Amino acid sequence: MNTESPIAHHPSAPAWFNKALAVPFEDKTVMVEGCPIHYLHWERPGKPGLLLVHGGGAHAHWWTFLAPFFTDHYSVAALDMSGAGDSGRREAYSAELFSAELMGVCADAGFDDKPIIVGHSFGGFVTLNTGTLFGDRLTGVVLVDSPVRPPDYQWQHQRNRAPVRPKKIYPDFETALARFRLMPPQECDSDYVIDYIGRHSVTEADGGWTWKFDDQLFRKFRFGDMTEALKSLQCRVGVIYGDRSQLFTQDIADYMFEVLDSSVPFVAIPEADHHLFIDQPLPFVAALRALLAEWRHSRPNRGG
């Protein structure tokens, strides 16, 4: 079993944060299509499965301080997809391989009875693709600030930033940690969260320290138009986004709502940008818990 120590040098960390990090979990690894996939598991035998999926350049520990809020009703896992965190790297990446990783973790964690998958940003697109491929084996998917854009979307309205920048080598751990930034950039008042995530983002390398993610991933892989995937979902789906997100605008929310149907909940988290569960972690937890509670006590109108 593993637990995280409270971040002593950030006395502003609230009690709920340190309490969540003190909840034990297990580090596990499963082989999926020849690649070791690492994940964290807050096992609750007999409870249905809930899988949490990180965004681009991120890792499983973005969820460590949130996962314990869901263990009353779920056995929870958070994975490192290939090319991220403590999982292996691939020569080539594909949407099908990422989806196989999600389902491989679900199987290894014992999530046999239609788990729910929650994905943030890039992880939301992987989650969406997994719902189209394996929807009959899932209760539902939740897309967290994962904007499915119209085919004619005007990209000049978005900031021209690569999802993952080339990595640098830093001389020591503290120098690397000091360079940790959210991408896309946004302000964040929760220094204790940034410090915690940053400490799990770096690793030793030849000549110093660098980031864990594979900076070649997005040179080898791209998602295409996701509209057809959104239309074809047969399992339940929910959408949570930041109402200040520069990626998930109201026009995109309106478009996705039109592609889906009135049975799909859309929840905007107030005062939250793209990294909404860093901006507003407890409002995010409340929104996701409410959505999951509704799914537990209602019959699906679509798929499921």
Score class of each variant (00 low, 15 high):
Glu187Gly: 13
Asp113Asn: 13
Trp211Ser: 01
Ile37Ala: 07
Gly140Phe: 00
Lys28His: 05
Asn2Thr: 15
Asp27Ala: 12
Val193Thr: 06
Trp295Asn: 08
Gly49Gln: 07
Ile197Gln: 10
Pro115Asn: 03
Gln250Tyr: 04
Leu138Lys: 00
Tyr39Gln: 11
Met183Glu: 09
Tyr241Pro: 11
Asn129Thr: 04
Met81Ile: 03
Gly46Ala: 13
Asp80Ala: 12
Ala92Phe: 07
Glu228Ala: 13
Glu91Thr: 11
Tyr93Pro: 07
Asp206Glu: 15
Asp152Tyr: 02
Gln280Trp: 14
Ala286Ile: 05
Arg302Asn: 04
Pro184Asn: 10
Arg159Pro: 06
Tyr74Glu: 01
Asp254Ser: 15
Gly140Asp: 04
Arg289Asn: 13
Asn160Gly: 00
Asn160Ser: 03
Asp206Gly: 09
Val126Tyr: 00
Pro283Glu: 01
Thr130Trp: 00
Pro115Gln: 06
Cys35Asp: 09
Pro171Lys: 13
Trp42Leu: 07
Thr249Leu: 11
Ala13Lys: 10
Pro185Val: 08
Asp172Thr: 05
Leu276Arg: 03
Gln246Asp: 14
Glu187Val: 07
Thr3Leu: 07
Arg44Ser: 14
Gly131Ser: 02
Asp172Trp: 00
Lys167Pro: 05
Ala293Phe: 00
Gly238Arg: 01
Lys212Arg: 14
Gln250Ile: 06
Gly135Ala: 09
Asp279Tyr: 10
Lys47Asn: 07
Thr132Pro: 04
Ala229Lys: 09
Asp152Gln: 03
Pro171Thr: 05
Gly119Asn: 10
Ala253Thr: 14
Glu4Arg: 07
Tyr153Val: 01
Phe134Cys: 04
Tyr170Glu: 01
Glu174Gly: 02
Ser201Arg: 00
Ile197Tyr: 14
Ile278Val: 15
Cys35Ile: 11
Val105Trp: 08
Thr132Asn: 04
Pro166Gln: 05
Thr64Tyr: 09
Val118Thr: 08
Gly88Lys: 05
Asp172Glu: 04
Ala272Lys: 01
Leu51Ile: 07
Ala272Leu: 05
His120Glu: 10
Ala58Leu: 10
Trp155Lys: 15
Phe70Asn: 13
Leu247Glu: 15
Pro11Cys: 10
Met103Ile: 15
Ser87Arg: 07
Asp72Thr: 09
Asp195Trp: 12
Met183Ser: 10
Gly123His: 08
Met226Ser: 13
Ser262Thr: 07
Phe134Asn: 12
Pro163Val: 08
Val142Arg: 02
Tyr255Ala: 01
Asp214Trp: 12
Lys168Trp: 04
Phe111Glu: 01
Ser5Val: 02
Thr175Asp: 03
Arg159Cys: 03
Glu96Ala: 15
Ser75Gln: 11
Arg222Asn: 14
Arg296Phe: 01
Phe266Asp: 14
Arg222Ile: 06
His10Phe: 13
Tyr39Asn: 12
Val193Pro: 03
Leu133Gln: 15
Ala286His: 09
Ile269Cys: 05
Met81Ala: 15
Asp225Lys: 06
Thr71Phe: 11
His274Lys: 08
Pro147Ala: 08
Gly88His: 09
Arg222Cys: 08
Gly57Glu: 05
Pro48Arg: 06
Asp27Cys: 09
Val239Leu: 02
Phe284Thr: 06
Ala95Ser: 14
Pro11Asp: 05
Phe98Val: 02
Ala109Gln: 01
Val105Arg: 00
Val193Lys: 03
Ala229Asp: 11
Asp136Cys: 02
Glu204Ser: 12
Arg244Pro: 03
